[in-house]
Amino acid sequence: MTIETTALGTLALIAIMAVVTLATRFGGVFLMSFVRISPRIESFINAMASSVLIAIIVPMAWEGDAGARLALLTTAVLVLLIRKPLPAIALGIATAALVRYLG
């Protein structure tokens, strides 16, 4: 099935995207309302939550250029050393810009 990108068709496509995205925002919480939260389920949820970030970042670093990798490395080292997220993020971004400028 295809939709022509006329004015009306584009509206329909945007509506479809909005509904699908909303379903992902609501769906996890909706499904969890049928689950009894045992300590084991809570432990699953907590481990999953911090793993989401790793599962986003690791492939990003893998496919990224030198700028991307050094940016993540800079942020990681700084946040572990100085424990302040904002300077760590800012210097990470600056590192990406610098490496790409020099490269």
Binding site: T2, I3, L13, G28
Partner: peptide, 28 residues
């Protein structure tokens, strides 16, 4: 000029499916 609906739904759902887990993690 035209867009296939099912592939669009699949891609949007796959990329945004992380929201499912994020929402679930906030459930407590």
């Amino acid at each position: 000029t035209q867009v296939s609906v099912l592939p669009l739904v699949a891609v949007v759902f796959a990329i945004n499916s992380r929201h499912l887990l994020m929402g679930a993690s906030l459930y407590p």
